[in-house]
Nucleic acid binder design. Structure first.
Lengths: 206, 206
DNA sequence: GAACTAACGAAACTGGAGTCCCGTTATGGG
DNA sequence: CCCATAACGGGACTCCAGTTTCGTTAGTTC
């Protein structure tokens, strides 16, 4: 429905509108990293973006609205998928990519902030779901390949396996506070690979 | 350090002080469920608790401060641990308990709100870590028992196994938005049990 | 049970996030 | 190139979360 995005439905998608969106989203990311969602002031974002605060309020209306648009923007920046020839290799590559992202001071804080925003606002939550669906879809093929190679049962749910790799890393980031080191990433990948091999992620029949 | 808690360091831990804390924490939980962290107004909490708003601001000073105290209070309410005689049985019981909690309309929202608050505030994050450490410690013995029974390698890290059970459920709650049904809980438990049996959660030597 | 004071409560105050109004700029169509 | 209007910008305004002040209540101590 009424997405804030500029490209598709905008009446006048010309240069200025797109420039403003890019500048504001960039500024929003910076401000989010520095102050978190709670301390996000749209007037401050406007100032950083070199834009009038009225503009920010008019187009995004609120903090969750802005964060949701930021998420849609993030989803478009696709990350390269590895293909190492083995499921464990691919999952390890994925786990290390996720852990590097979350352990990065800037991106880690950004992800935390975005998840926090999603817990408050339904539209942001939908945007977050879209984001993760996109990411999981990008990596699902490596599980399908493993199924073709006979490494995992044919009824394995690829999405479930990919999610199983990320889940422990996000748990550390958000809940437990344990260090997000490479050992944790490798362990998450290994556990998911073993459980997948043993058929723990069989598609639920309905 | 300067905890807000009443019992230990308080100069005057008498009846009224404790009553006020109980009423405010109760009201805070209700308000959190209804409005989320972003919509949490301390004046509203005070009104619900039948207490002056000055009191709430004085003792907890801010929303994160109040949430952190609420978490410490939640950590004290221990949940019963099962002992079914097998690791899979115990982990399944744990997974179902967690999923029932998170799927409950009230508690699920509360947990989301609390996690969101922790991403913003360091003290709240510490309180959240304490909370999960407490919960994980309560369930770790069932992995130790499994190790004694020879179900898993002796160098298995019990905490890591318990966390592995919860992680996928929290991932669903916060990120993916997939349904938190019992099948998801059972799958999480089964995957953790299998991975543990195969030695994926061996203690990292240092 | 009287005095001391920690902790509470009511009400006035303040600052800044978010809104409104209206004039200005810059796309897009013809 | 010119008009129509979508989109932007500055500044005044509003409203309420959070603070301050000061008087009141109720644990605690002797």
């Amino acid at each position: 429905m009424g997405s804030v995005r500029t490209q598709p439905g905008s009446v006048r998608p010309g240069g200025r509108t797109a420039r403003v969106r890019a500048a504001v989203l960039r500024a929003a990311g910076d401000a989010l990293v520095e102050n978190g969602v709670h301390g996000l002031d749209l007037a401050d974002v406007a100032f950083r973006a070199g834009v009038g605060k009225t503009t920010v309020y008019r187009r995004w209306s609120s903090v969750p609205g802005l964060v949701a648009d930021l998420l849609d923007d993030m989803a478009e920046q696709s990350l390269p998928r590895s293909d190492t020839g083995s499921l464990l290799g691919d999952l390890t590559a994925n786990a290390r990519l996720v852990r590097t992202t979350l352990a990065d001071p800037r991106q880690g804080v950004l992800f935390k902030a975005v998840i926090a925003a999603a817990t408050c606002d339904a539209r942001t939550a939908e945007a977050l779901n879209r984001f993760y669906t996109t990411r999981v879809n990008e990596w699902a093929p490596c599980v399908e390949a493993a199924a073709r190679r006979g490494e995992v049962p044919p009824d394995t749910d690829p999405h479930e396996v990919i999610r199983a790799v990320s889940a422990p890393l996000y748990y550390r980031l958000l809940a437990s506070g344990d260090p997000l080191d490479e050992a944790a990433a490798d362990r998450a990948a290994a556990a998911a690979a073993i459980a997948a091999r043993e058929g723990a992620y069989a598609r639920t029949e309905r």
